[in-house]
């Protein structure tokens, strides 16, 4: 059976929407970070899918994905470091606890 591009694109978009949903509803910072990873990975997946199906002759999307993965890793490392700092200060990683900056 020949799988069309939709078989790949639809899961990728579902993943993106799950990421957005998780980012908005989750209360734990690490969970929020995981949702962000979902969003970033679905964007990477999109690049690979488009490259593979629409432009099989070139490699631009694949190369872009490699760079995007590296950048996403850097972002996660930084965010985890900051979360650890917050945990040391207030002993919690819930977003409901980090509400000192208001008004």
């Amino acid at each position: 059976m020949d799988l069309s591009i939709l078989w790949y694109l639809v899961p990728s978009v579902i993943m993106f929407v799950c990421g957005v949903y998780g980012f908005i509803t989750r209360k734990n910072m690490v969970a929020i970070l995981i949702s962000l990873e979902l969003m970033l990975n679905s964007a990477d997946l999109n690049f690979v899918i488009f490259n593979r199906f629409l432009f099989p002759g070139s490699m631009e999307g694949m190369v872009f994905t490699l760079f995007a993965i590296a950048i996403a890793a850097a972002e996660t490392a930084l965010a985890i470091a900051i979360i650890i700092n917050i945990y040391r200060s207030i002993g919690s990683t819930e977003v409901t606890e980090t509400n000192k900056l208001k008004h």
Partner: peptide
């Protein structure tokens, strides 16, 4: 730290949206 976590989470969120948009531009 609280400011930093707010900044990094929104910054990554915006980059994810930007990357998603760029993947369509690429298409």
């Amino acid at each position: 730290h609280e400011a930093a976590i707010k900044y990094i989470l929104t910054a990554v969120f915006s980059s994810a949206i930007l990357l998603m948009g760029l993947s369509f531009v690429y298409a």
